[in-house]
């Protein structure tokens, strides 16, 4: 019995505590991201934004959450019930699962697996299932069109994201996320690989269905896209997942290009600030750009979106993979090359 306790029970309890810690932190971050988005959009459009609930409207996200919780969940009679209910759960679950491998500081990671970056890539490519299942199960034309658009869009932009990841991995020589950050000790990858950073940023916008690539939920043509038929908590789950994915993509971008938890300069005043705060600051900067872009750019037309993904980003990032590999090999900078 004592062996059972020490070998299975305590690790399990520890694991559950870690999971709860990550999820609670993430949900609070999501709540305040929606608040930040409304405030930033309001400031850009010379409005005040939420300012009634709590001081400076700080309790607004919780009021919204409570409102959604108490509403009635409507399931359309012609919908395929099992898949209709599974879709938002799947989307939300996947957006949480990805956080298991994210390192927030040196050694602060729940699962320090060898193939961390592949795991993230796999999880983000699974995200399309929630959307396509929701669109099909709703048995309604606007959600279905939204789901088809999104499936094509996410598959297209994943190709360029994959090639950007390969470029970074060539410079690191490891698939482990902590190793990727450690490899940027002297120089953040954003400087030598700046074009890839831009390609990754735009592809991340497309992958998270944000403006100017929010065609799956283009309200002017498709009502609300794939979640038109969803209400109450099932809607809230899609909403939470979308914002959690935004934070995930920003974190991934900070880890791949902006040195994760590392301070900008390795000298005294910067190194005194703990790593997670640096990571948080970098993520916040990228998220601000996400919101800024939403307030600035009009939506892409669908054929232009596809053209950008396949005819511009794919050849360009493929060229950079070859170029990076060539330069690393020629200069003898390949990791593990003697």
């Amino acid at each position: 019995m004592a062996e059972f306790l020490s070998e299975y029970l305590w690790p399990l309890v520890l694991l559950i505590l870690q999971v709860v810690a990550i999820i609670v932190a993430l949900l609070i971050a999501v709540a305040y991201l929606t608040y930040a988005e409304r405030k930033v959009l309001a400031a850009i459009q010379l409005r005040r934004g939420p300012n009634v609930v709590g001081p400076f409207g700080l309790l607004q996200p919780f009021a919204d959450g409570l409102k959604l919780l108490t509403k009635e969940t409507i399931i359309p009679t012609v919908a395929n019930k099992v898949i209709f209910i599974t879709a938002p759960i799947l989307t939300f679950g996947l957006s949480l699962a990805a956080w298991a491998v994210i390192p927030v500081n040196d050694g602060w990671v729940m699962a320090d697996i060898n193939v961390g970056i592949l795991y993230l890539f796999a999880i983000s490519s699974l995200g399309v299932y929630g959307i396509i299942m929701a669109g099909w199960a709703s048995n309604s034309k606007y959600p279905f069109l939204g789901a088809l658009r999104s499936a094509a869009q996410m598959v297209s932009y994943e190709v360029s994201i994959g090639l950007v990841l390969i470029t970074v991995l060539l410079c690191v020589g490891s698939l482990n996320l902590s190793d990727i950050v450690r490899a940027q000790q002297g120089l953040w990858f954003v400087l030598p690989l700046f074009p890839m950073f831009v390609v990754f940023f735009i592809s991340a916008l497309a992958e998270t269905n944000r403006t100017p690539f929010d065609l799956p939920e283009a309200e002017a043509e498709l009502v609300a896209g794939f979640f038109s038929e969803y209400s109450s908590m099932s809607f809230a789950m899609f909403y939470l997942a979308e914002y959690a994915n935004m934070i995930l993509m920003s974190t991934l971008m900070s880890i791949l290009f902006l040195g994760g938890w590392l301070p900008p300069l390795n000298i005294a005043p910067f190194t005194d600030i703990p790593g997670p705060i640096w990571l948080g600051l970098k993520v916040a900067c990228i998220l601000f750009c996400f919101i800024w872009i939403r307030a600035t750019f009009p939506r892409y037309r669908y054929d232009q979106l596809m053209r950008l993904g396949w005819k511009v980003f794919l050849p360009f990032s493929l060229f950079w993979v070859v170029l990076t590999a060539g330069v690393l090999l020629y200069a003898g900078w390949l990791p593990g090359q003697s």
């Binding site: 890539f121 490519s125 699974l126």
Partner: peptide, 13 residues
């Protein structure tokens, strides 16, 4: 993970 990325993430979609 390659199985997930290639078959589930692309082919099955």
């Amino acid at each position: 993970l390659i199985l997930l990325i290639v078959y589930v993430g692309a082919v099955a979609v």
